[in-house]
């Protein structure tokens, strides 16, 4: 099977997602954690390695994992197909013999790429500025956790955009209400939190002694299996929905 179709769709989606000067937001999102890291270094010249590690971990957990990552995933995941549904241009992709699963998988991968482009360089800059090494084990671990979380969020929000035109609002409520508060209040809900999967995987890759703020009661294998299940369900729902999607005009 040629990948020409996927590459063309990916190029189109990338330009859709990052057109209209959205790349400025991309630079700002990467710049924010880097700026905070730089301010920390300026203010705290003589800090121990442990303190620097704790600050870097706390910064990444609170700014990137809690705020930037879910928001970027929400915007790119929901818009990867949602924008074309909204303006009617999806008709040009759907009026082709392309299997719908190829459309969904391509769109999820591009949304993931755009999300990672929005947060990963910032993470590496934090590592370089505070820890002196962009490939520090803490940064590597966090990068893995963030990548998995971004994939799950993008697949989930893309599926959501196929079921409702209010995906951005519902997604925002989910990010704030569930990931931001409820899932952290009750131990039993943590197995249903993408944030917890990311934290657990980050801790597993970085090592417990380095992880600092990345500690989760969730076992890494539980996080892996739950991630696979969630990804499978979200993708299957999106493919099924796209197969039966009606392009309805206002009547």
């Amino acid at each position: 099977m040629s990948l020409r179709v996927e590459l063309s769709l990916a190029s189109l989606t990338w330009r859709l997602l990052l057109g209209r000067r959205r790349w400025i937001a991309l630079i700002l999102c990467n710049g924010l954690p880097a700026l905070l890291a730089w301010l920390f270094v300026l203010e705290q010249a003589d800090v121990s390695a442990r303190e620097a590690l704790n600050f870097a971990g706390g910064l990444l957990a609170s700014v990137v994992l809690t705020v930037l990552l879910p928001l970027a995933s929400l915007i790119f995941g929901a818009m990867a197909l949602g924008q074309e549904i909204e303006d009617g241009t999806l008709a040009y992709s759907l009026s082709k013999p392309t299997a719908r699963w190829r459309l969904v998988v391509t769109k999820v991968i591009v949304a993931l790429g755009a999300t990672l482009a929005t947060v990963l360089p910032g993470i590496w800059l934090v590592g370089w500025i505070i820890l002196g090494d962009a490939a520090h084990p803490l940064i590597r671990g966090f990068s893995v956790g963030v990548t998995v979380a971004a994939l799950l969020y993008c697949a989930g929000f893309l599926a959501l955009s196929l079921f409702t035109r209010r995906a951005l609002i519902i997604g925002l409520l989910y990010v704030i209400g569930w990931e931001g508060s409820l899932s952290r209040l009750f131990a039993g809900t943590r197995t249903l939190s993408v944030r917890e999967y990311a934290t657990s995987l980050s801790e597993a890759v970085a090592g417990s002694d380095l992880a600092g703020p990345f500690t989760s009661p969730l076992e890494p294998w539980t996080a892996i299996w739950m991630s696979v299940a969630l990804l499978g369900v979200a993708t299957a729902l999106a493919i099924g929905r796209l197969r039966g999607l009606e392009l309805v005009e206002e009547i």
């Binding site: 020409r4 179709v5 063309s8 769709l9 189109l12 040009y92 992709s93 082709k96 013999p97 392309t98």
Partner: peptide
Amino acid sequence: RLNAVLHE
């Protein structure tokens, strides 16, 4: 061209 590619 995009249309042509998507039609393979």
